[in-house]
């Protein structure tokens, strides 16, 4: 028996909207730790890791570890039927091939339930090593989204270079080139506008723009994004959800031949 109650359906809606275009089907794993997902995109270049911690839920009952295969597009369709301030309850009986999403309005005068078919998904779990990254950048999530979108219109790849002074995003395409430098800056009005650099040594890596743009669909989840890079490692683009957990995207860098 599984029963998870979350007061803000809006959060789960944002989570689904941020990954449904990158990953088609995925297993949601439910354990004492929380409600989690690890999935690769169809070309196995990017990986999504989601954790919604059990203590972030209003009610969390998971009698034993279970894995539920879901089509993320269909799950997003069902969640779109909830209002952001509805309470959502995810329910599944042992051995059942369906999951139920129950939505309750804040005044309790509207209660809806949506039953969705589960699917068998043969997915590989990858072991993500704990790594010390050479460069970590924390910056405004919306600024990062803007940069990826802008550079994506000019070139297919983005070079991200971190130095002590700041982070540089560059691209090159048929029509020309573009460079954006975000200097480290903590003297800001709003905390989320700060650009913070933690760097052991300078790092410069090349990534496919379209994946970076896809990751920024998670922008509504957090004010800041954390970008971690090391040579010979996938980049990590992380959106932390206050008290609830995180959404992490991993992307393999492009390698010069």
């Amino acid at each position: 028996m599984l029963e998870l109650r979350l007061t803000q359906a809006g959060l789960l809606k944002k989570v689904l909207e941020s990954i449904k275009d990158l990953v088609t089907d995925a297993n949601f794993d439910c354990s004492a730790t929380g409600f989690s997902l690890q999935a690769m995109d169809s070309s196995h270049v990017a990986l999504v890791a989601l954790l919604l911690r059990s203590d972030g839920f209003e009610h969390y009952r998971c009698d034993h570890n279970i894995s539920m295969g879901m089509n993320l597009g269909n799950m997003a369709k069902m969640l779109r039927c909830a209002s952001d301030d509805d309470t959502v309850t995810i329910k599944a009986d042992d051995g059942s091939d369906t999951v139920t999403f129950m939505f309750e309005s804040p005044s309790q005068d509207k209660i809806s339930d949506y039953e969705m078919k589960l699917m068998d998904i043969d997915s590989e779990h990858l072991g993500i090593p704990e790594a010390e990254y050479q460069a970590i950048v924390r910056m405004s999530a919306s600024e990062f989204a803007r940069i990826c979108k802008d550079l994506g219109t000019i070139g297919d790849t983005v070079i991200i270079s971190v130095t002590k002074e700041g982070v540089q995003f560059s691209t090159k395409g048929d029509i020309g080139t573009a460079n954006i430098i975000c200097r480290k800056n903590t003297a800001v009005d709003k905390k989320e506008e700060a650009t913070v650099i933690e760097m052991a040594e300078p790092v410069s890596l090349t990534f496919a723009s379209r994946y970076l743009i896809a990751f920024t669909k998670a922008t509504p989840l957090a004010g800041q994004v954390t970008i971690s890079m090391s040579y010979d490692m996938p980049i990590v683009v992380e959106y932390k959800m206050e008290t609830m957990g995180y959404m992490r995207f991993y992307l393999a860098p492009k390698i010069e031949e």
Binding site: M40, A252, P253, K254, I255
Partner: peptide, 14 residues
């Protein structure tokens, strides 16, 4: 030119 490796070439399967 540059090539795009997969994520599985960095992280091992469990």
């Amino acid at each position: 030119g540059s090539k795009q490796p997969t994520i599985t070439s960095f992280f091992s399967k469990l």
